[in-house]
């Protein structure tokens, strides 16, 4: 388990006290049921107090929590027969984006997701989910394949953004993202994306032009990271809290702007606290949304997708 987040420390301390007490009572054969119950009650109300009113910056930290379930966890918990497929057929296999085939409720689907990596070694291997052009091109290849075989595509978004560096520029980072946008806009199968953690700008949108945009309760989706925003505004990256407020990037904000279509509830305290429950919540939402999309004739599906994006924007 990773370090607790600053604001959940009182809760984590209380929880460890409870388990210590429980161990102690078992070891010594003492009956401490009453004491434990009192503390548990206290922990529950503390949990409500902390997680019932999270600030945007606190949500950001939960969204980036290193123990949060990732693409592979969902592939295992929600799907059957997952087969991973590699490479863009042109340059490389970018491990920052994974993809493949699986069965969802008995139906073949294509699944694609950003992967940050959990330990240091994996994080480096996956470049912290900063994909290069070949990552987006792999995703596009798998989406075109899904279209050929008439299966829906489900994408899992969790990236700080597309990689910024010379190699990415040389190989056409911008072109790779743009091609994904135009391809997804016209893909003739149902598309759903789920922001499972961090939705970082163009690198997220490159998997995100979909019929339905689902967001986990504590995920966020932003045009710029709060750190970069603070640097631009105040030349001071430590003012992330303010930037997180200004950017209006939480799931309820995005629902208000017509970007997010459905918020998927998380266990109290965040998805990292209960993988099984988190996956069940998502599976339920996906089954319902996908069911509705599968009923639509292809022209209707594409028309609605067009209208969804066409209507986003505020002007006078």
């Amino acid at each position: 388990m990773a370090q607790p987040l600053e604001f959940e420390k009182p809760l984590v301390e209380l929880e460890s006290k409870i388990s210590e007490l429980r161990a102690f009572s078992e070891e010594k054969g003492l009956d401490l049921t009453e004491e434990i119950a009192t503390l548990e009650k206290k922990a529950e109300s503390l949990k409500q107090a902390i997680f019932g009113s999270l600030t945007p910056w606190q949500r950001t930290q939960i969204a980036r929590h290193p123990d949060r379930p990732n693409f592979y966890n969902y592939a295992q918990l929600m799907f059957e027969d997952f087969i991973e497929l590699h490479g863009d057929r042109a340059f490389a296999d970018d491990r920052a984006i994974a993809g493949g085939l699986a069965l969802f409720k008995g139906m073949p689907v294509t699944v694609i997701g950003n992967v940050k990596g959990k330990d240091t070694k994996e994080k480096i291997q996956r470049n912290f989910a900063y994909a290069h052009p070949e990552g987006y091109r792999k995703a596009m290849r798998l989406m075109k394949q899904a279209e050929k075989f008439g299966r829906p595509v489900i994408t899992f978004i969790d990236t700080p953004g597309a990689y910024s560096g010379l190699a990415a520029e040389e190989r056409g980072q911008a072109e790779a993202i743009a091609k994904n946008l135009i391809t997804m806009a016209a893909l003739k199968v149902p598309l759903i994306c789920v922001v499972i953690g961090e939705g970082g700008s163009g690198g997220a949108l490159a998997l995100g032009v979909t019929d339905k945009v689902l967001m986990f309760e504590h995920s966020f989706y932003s045009v710029i990271s709060p750190e970069s925003c603070a640097t631009i505004l105040w030349k001071d990256a430590s003012r992330v809290k303010d930037a997180a407020e200004f950017l209006k990037f939480t799931a309820p904000d995005l629902q208000r702007f017509g970007v997010c279509d459905r918020i998927v509830p998380e266990p109290l305290g965040g998805a990292q606290r209960d993988y099984a429950l988190t996956a069940r919540n998502l599976a339920e939402a996906l089954e319902e949304e996908l069911g509705k999309l599968l009923e639509l004739p292809p022209e209707e599906l594409l028309q609605r997708r067009y209208t969804k994006y066409r209507e986003i924007g505020v002007f006078a």
Binding site: A185, Y221, S222, I232, I312
Partner: peptide
């Protein structure tokens, strides 16, 4: 940046 996610979504809208 000042238009947040609405700005990002213009990329999708124009590409569509």
């Amino acid at each position: 940046m000042q238009e947040g996610i609405l700005s990002l979504m213009q990329m999708a809208k124009t590409s569509a």
